[in-house]
Amino acid sequence: MSEGLMQLLDPEAIVLGSDASTNEEIIRILAGRLESLGYVKSSYADAVVRREMTIPTGLPLERADNVAVPHTDPEHVLKPGIAMGTLKKPVTFANMEDPDEKLPVGFVFLLAINDKDKQIEALQSVMATIQNPDALDGLRSARTLDDVRAVLG
């Protein structure tokens, strides 16, 4: 299962059923949460949006609602954190491995990472969630934080 991810997600940085219609919009909503919670500098949102255009982070899961893991260089990060957004309707991200391929994305995990050696567990629990179709289905229908906790533990 995806044990542990809930411990790493700031409850204030979880956005469920967002109306965002573009990848930039959902990135800016989630980055705004991380900024106001003190995880990232004000330069973070622009840096992530810019990076997504050239080095995209969509992950193809062979679903109608795939996952993206936007992030950027550590210089924009104050302390490690993760924001999560689920989308009412999927938005388009490009495929990390093949930027010419567009993917419908229903789940966004915005990563604020600044020390790879200390954040291995955080990355592993994000990946475990991504690789668990039941967890993603649970997150898609989650409407409250308790729903999210029930899925992510």
């Binding site: 080095i55 790879k116 990355l123």
Partner: peptide
């Protein structure tokens, strides 16, 4: 990976 610290770390560990 793009940043050299995020997804490459997850892949390295796996």
């Amino acid at each position: 990976c793009g940043t050299g610290i995020a997804t490459s770390t997850a892949v390295n560990v796996a």
